[in-house]
Design a protein around this nucleic acid. Structure first.
Length: 569
RNA sequence: CGGGGCGUAGCGCAGAUGGUAGCGCGCUUGGUUCGGGACCAAGAGGCCGCUGGUUCAAGUCCAGUCGCCCCGACCA
């Protein structure tokens, strides 16, 4: 490819609206242009990277016996109503009506479509297991699209769905996918971790998210530093153990004034009590009911866990009016003692607390030396706590760490969730109709592009790893078109191209500095530089983008040296 | 949905107190340069987001409207 005839509009200046490094670099390197909020043009360089990633994904999926197909982006509302997700999915589902006022959604994921297809066409246990996948554009109407392609409203995704006759078969296939995913991210040159996660809107029981480690990541992961243990989970799911306070004699319940002291910090500072000896009483609305949720003052509630234990569709912290109605006092002084009209549950962190402090359900007052069972009743204890770094691992007891990650893939065991709701069945060996046991497996292709850049860049620009680089080599001719070095560079370019190396030739009539800067910015792994000096000394320079290393070779060894470098990387 | 900010050339921006629009980058043409974003000369490119108002006169003041960006969406 001749750069002069290509479309890679590089920029000297960073565009104003880019926040994170990958977004900045994708725009500067002429890979990405915005069309609208969360909607982008993927320019040729970016498109080549996308194609590279897709090819890796295809190879690994095919290796795992998955079969590629293509489903429509446009999906009729009936399908979503069958599964029940038309009502549950929320605003992220892009909906609209056609000229006949029929409702449709742009596919954010394709469980409904594939389950319907399988239900009609996969009729016998003899056809199972089967895994079908596609690579296509997906649509999610994000509350706030940001960070370029990291959180876009339209993006490219690989989604796969497997169908099984039993759980054991699904378990085995899940493991196979776990391996396939690990291979994919490895081949993309990413540093990643597979972590336990919440299943979110897609549903199902078991799930792992594949997280690319990056400080700009929007997800927080809690992980055990002990390699033998390997516990790692998203902050939405992570469990942890925390310290137990010392035993002590029960003291007498006492009401104290706490004028205008509402927050844990204010109360603990004012009463000179450690935050862990305060108990927060949080009033949650859930499906029309109210729950008073107790948790130690130094801890936070994990709403995902809470939603599960309440078995609720929606949970929401009660507004000030509701709080006043229930407690009879201002927000900030709610407590479990004499609290009526609310189900009282508590996090396990409250279990070992004695003589703790709570709001007194009267404005500007708290109770101290409170003890449950004696002063009030707790309906049940649960683990509804957000795990923190510094907590102890539930598996091995090591001190947990946390880091930020970009979620690039997720694998789920769906079970019968969709096959049941959509009544998708096959004929089993015993002649009876059964629902498929399903799994689903997603990878954000365009997000991988951004994640790879987040991990692989320096002050000069992008540093592609060979596996997903848009080109393997860039030939740089120093000297104007028509000069001897330009001619030689062109010959080298043709030679490399004909031998199957993916090569870009910077044949533009611009100054050397310009070419070097652009080559570095675009981040092609190897630069072959041809100058007057090279010709005179028969000593050509191959520059390795990542290390900056310069390798000098003679004219006849350029191709073999590059072959070797490409093979080794 | 709430708070903040911004809409002026393809991009980045400047345009007190109102007087009919400029800079840098990029682009075109010609010439000189050619190992780290060269230089000279000549050009092209604007419904100053949109609508209405005030005024002799509006990019500038007023009202409305649309769009984009950032922050938040919750811990008693």
């Amino acid at each position: 490819m001749l750069l002069s005839k290509y479309l890679a509009p590089t920029l000297k200046e960073t565009p104003a609206d880019a926040e994170i490094i990958s977004h900045k670099l994708m725009i500067r390197a002429g890979m990405l242009r915005k069309v609208g909020p969360g909607i982008y043009n993927y320019l040729p360089l970016c498109f080549r990277v996308i194609k590279k990633i897709e090819e890796i994904v295809r190879e690994e999926m095919n290796k795992a016996d998955a079969i590629e197909l293509l489903m429509p982006i446009l999906t009729p509302a009936e399908l979503w109503m069958q599964s029940g997700r038309w009502d549950v999915y929320g605003k992220e589902l892009m909906r609209f009506s056609d000229r006949h006022d029929k409702e449709y959604a742009l596919g954010p994921t394709h469980e409904e479509v594939i389950t319907s297809l399988a239900g009609n066409e996969v009729k016998s246990y003899r056809q199972l297991p089967i895994c079908l996948y596609q690579i296509q554009s997906k649509f999610r109407d994000e509350v706030r699209p940001r960070f370029g392609v990291m959180r876009a409203r339209e993006f490219v995704m690989k989604d796969a769905y497997s169908f099984h006759a039993n759980e054991k078969c699904l378990d085995e296939y899940y493991k196979k996918m776990y391996e396939a995913y690990s291979n994919i991210f490895k081949r993309c040159g990413l540093r990643f971790r597979a972590v336990l996660a919440d299943s979110g809107a897609i549903g199902g029981e078991n799930t792992h998210e594949f997280m690319v480690l990056a400080s700009s990541g929007e997800s927080r992961v809690i992980s055990c530093p002990n390699d033998k243990c390997g516990y790692a989970a998203t902050d939405e799911t992570a469990d942890s153990n925390i310290f137990r306070p010392e035993k002590e004699e029960l003291k007498e319940l006492q009401k104290v004034d706490t004028p205008n002291k509402k927050t844990i910090e204010e109360v603990s500072g004012y009463l000179k009590i450690e935050p862990y000896k305060l108990v927060k009483t949080l009033l949650y609305k859930y499906d029309g009911n109210i729950a008073a949720v107790l948790i130690r003052g130094d801890r936070d509630v994990n709403e995902i866990k809470l939603k599960k234990v309440l078995n609720a569709n929606e949970i929401e912290l009660a507004d000030a009016d509701t709080v006043s109605k229930i407690t009879g006092c201002a927000v900030g002084f709610a407590g479990p003692v004499n609290l009526k009209n609310a189900k009282i549950i508590a996090d396990n962190s409250v279990k070992n607390l004695l003589n703790f402090t709570v709001g007194a359900n009267s404005t500007d007052a708290h109770f101290i030396n409170v003890n449950y069972n004696r002063d009030f009743e707790i309906e049940k204890f649960y683990d509804i706590r957000l795990a923190n770094k510094g907590d102890k691992c539930v598996k091995c007891g090591a001190v947990l760490e946390d880091y930020r990650g970009i979620e690039v893939g997720q694998i789920f065991k769906l079970g019968e969730k969709y096959s049941k709701s959509m009544n998708a069945v096959y004929t089993a060996e015993d002649g009876k109709l059964k629902n498929y046991i399903m799994g689903c497996y997603g990878i954000g292709i365009t997000r991988i592009v951004a994640a790879a850049i987040e991990q692989n860049n320096d002050e000069k620009g992008i540093v592609w790893t060979l596996g997903i680089a848009p080109f393997q080599v860039i030939v740089i001719a120093l000297g104007k078109p028509g000069s001897k070095e330009f001619q030689t560079a062109k010959e080298i370019y043709e030679e490399l191209k004909n031998s199957g190396i993916e090569v870009l030739f910077d044949d533009r009539n611009v100054s050397p500095g310009f070419k070097f800067k652009d080559a570095d910015l675009i981040g092609i792994p190897f630069q072959a530089i041809v100058s007057q000096k090279s010709l005179a000394g028969n000593s050509f320079e191959i520059c390795v983008r990542k290390s900056g290393e310069k390798i000098m070779v003679d004219r006849n060894s350029i191709k073999s040296k590059l072959d070797e470098l490409i093979r080794l990387n």
